[in-house]
């Protein structure tokens, strides 16, 4: 694959970012991370309050990359079959079966958004996780394939009533957990309130130039760019140290104020997690027009690819967000490369 082609794809990726940033304002970092996830072919867990623009963001991305977009709301009575099909009595008085959100677009499904995933039962998580891992589903005696599908799930970390915490094995399937927060800049906040352009999400999404990328080529692009971006021995050693530090931070002299780190971590990042981190770092290097990964590329995705994989002792689990951020920041500040 020629450098020119990689360069062309990069231009398209950056154009996609520009388009999204035009309609979803004040979210440059989440937009960059979602772009990274799209080219790394990893699923994304979104974390944020209601009404911050998660759905608009995903619809805008879907319009930019093409392909199908499906969405389902997580509720306590949602069952796995609700994702696959739904039945109803037709006008003819006979029962009918229609494809559910997973099957509706067939192989063209590009983005599947599971809103409030932690309100759904573990049975639903289980089905979704298989689809995420294998991108296949057995239904109606047929094996359905979703080769281009990316799952975006949202969970509200504040409300805990009637929710089912996603187990660590399930969290590990997501490449990233990206926080979506309200922009803090006063001018942007004012625009979001008073600019009528932002009041109609449908019209806003239509402003995005359609099909900048082609969803059915993203797997191929991802493979090519993963092969083209190199990792030097020094970088490999650095990444290895970062991984070890998630398991035994005390051995690297990493401290968290007021916490005994040797008792804080039950399990560090998994091999799958670290490979996803490196995939994302490669994409970040490519987006920054580099042929090799630098420590900064790892830093750009380290927190989002690692934090949700850490398993804390139960006593620290309630402070997960705060402790994970401090632990990972201190890890980057402590471990040198070279």
């Amino acid at each position: 694959m020629s450098d020119k082609q990689l360069g062309d794809w990069r231009k398209q990726a950056l154009e996609l970012e520009t388009e999204i940033n035009r309609v979803v304002v004040g979210q440059q970092r989440p937009v960059r991370l979602i772009t990274t996830a799209i080219f790394s072919r990893g699923h994304v867990l979104l974390e944020g309050d209601v009404g911050v623009g998660k759905t608009t963001l995903l619809r805008a991305f879907t319009r930019g990359i093409g392909g199908g977009y499906e969405r389902i709301e997580g509720t306590i009575d949602l069952m796995p079959n609700d994702l696959v099909y739904h039945t109803y009595l037709g006008e003819d008085g006979r029962p009918h079966v229609d494809a559910g959100p997973l099957l509706r677009c067939g192989e063209n499904l590009a983005v599947f958004f599971f809103n409030e995933i932690n309100r759904a039962r573990p049975q639903v998580h289980s089905l979704l996780l298989r689809v995420m891992a294998e991108r296949t589903l057995s239904a109606f005696n047929t094996e359905h394939h979703f080769p281009h599908m990316m799952v975006f799930a949202d969970r509200n970390q504040v409300e805990k009533e009637e929710t089912f915490e996603i187990p660590s094995a399930a969290r590990d399937r997501f490449m990233m957990e990206i926080p979506i927060v309200v922009p803090s800049e006063a001018a942007l906040m004012e625009s979001l309130m008073f600019d009528t352009r932002f009041h109609n999400a449908d019209k806003l999404v239509e402003e995005v130039k359609p099909d900048i990328l082609h969803f059915d080529k993203l797997n191929h692009i991802a493979t090519v760019l993963q092969d083209s971006v190199q990792a030097s021995p020094k970088l490999r050693q650095y990444a290895l140290d970062l991984w070890r530090a998630t398991r035994t931070p005390q051995q690297f002299g990493i401290k968290v104020e007021g916490i005994d780190v040797s008792r804080m971590i039950l399990a560090g990042a998994s091999p799958r997690g670290m490979s996803m981190m490196l995939r994302a770092a490669r994409v970040n290097a490519w987006l920054n027009n580099r042929e090799a990964i630098l420590p900064e590329d790892i830093h750009a995705v380290y927190h989002e690819t690692v934090a949700h994989r850490l398993v804390f002792s139960p006593v620290y689990e309630l402070r997960r967000t705060e402790l994970a951020r401090e632990l990972l920041n201190n890890t980057i500040n402590t471990i040198a490369a070279p």
């Binding site: 190199q230 030097s232 020094k234 970088l235 580099r290 042929e291 090799a292 990964i293 630098l294 420590p295 490369a337 070279p338």
Partner: peptide, 11 residues
């Protein structure tokens, strides 16, 4: 320089 020496010799 560090980038060239340790991470990306082509830079």
């Amino acid at each position: 320089l560090s980038r060239t020496v340790f991470f990306e010799p082509t830079a």
